[in-house]
């Protein structure tokens, strides 16, 4: 593998982690969706580059899905949805920017330590990709637990999923990558439709303890 191939792949995967950090401190939903679109765009570029250097044409399908579905259709749909739900002006923050960023850095360090240590045998490209992918996955999880609004939790889940696609394309020659990315897209489509149909704004936690009791069917 030539130096340039590796460097570009490294750059793109690293950018994905960087964009994950950008998502972490967006507290306006509009801005968050824009950053997510950028996230998906970087993913599409990364997958397309992998398709080129691995000489694996089927990965172009995954890249196209990322580009059209994740970078365009989903953000546009969510943009409209949050306007309809009337939550577009809401500020969504549970943890402050500082602690969230610190936790994020800790998670990235963790994934580097874990993945680089266990993949010493694998080829360098897979190694780097897996380490970055785990970082993106963990940052996505972090976003899901630090947010309260359903839409931003879904954005967290979708960026987590982008990390998985990065891992799957980085694992050279992995079969079923396209099928898995299609299955995931269906899942995401369901989630997005779910938000709209069910008009879910917030979940898991509410300050109103009575509402919680009623929801659990366990009021005395």
């Amino acid at each position: 593998m030539s130096g340039l191939d590796f460097d570009v792949a490294h750059l793109l995967a690293g950018s994905l982690v960087l964009v994950s950090f950008l998502e972490l401190y967006q507290d306006r939903l509009y801005a968050l969706l824009n950053v997510y679109a950028a996230h998906a765009l970087v993913l599409a570029a990364s997958v397309a580059w992998q398709a080129l250097i691995q000489d694996a044409p089927h990965l172009y399908v995954t890249a196209t899905i990322a580009l059209i579905f994740k970078a365009i259709v989903i953000p546009v749909a969510l943009h409209r949805m949050i306007v309809r739900l009337g939550v577009h002006r809401e500020i969504d923050k549970v943890v402050g920017v500082g602690p969230a960023m610190l936790a994020g850095m800790g998670l990235v360090a963790l994934s580097m330590v874990v993945m680089l240590r266990v993949t010493q045998e694998a080829d360098p490209l897979t190694r780097e990709d897996l380490a970055f992918a785990l970082a993106v996955v963990l940052l996505g999880l972090l976003m899901m637990v630090t947010r309260r609004n359903a839409v931003s939790q879904v954005v967290g889940f979708m960026s987590l999923e982008n990390g998985l696609v990065l891992a799957a394309t980085g694992a050279k020659g992995m079969p079923l990558v396209v099928e898995i990315s299609v299955a995931f897209s269906i899942l995401i489509a369901f989630i997005v439709i779910g938000i709209f149909l069910f008009r879910i704004r917030e979940r898991f936690d509410t300050v109103d303890v009575h509402a919680l009791d009623r929801f659990r069917g366990e009021r005395r």
């Binding site: 899901m144 359903a150 939790q153 889940f157 989630i191 779910g194 069910f198 879910i200 979940r203 929801f215």
Partner: peptide, 11 residues
């Protein structure tokens, strides 16, 4: 309640 449960299960 059912929608909340489904959503929680889903996520």
């Amino acid at each position: 309640e059912a929608l909340e449960a489904a959503w929680k299960y889903f996520i």
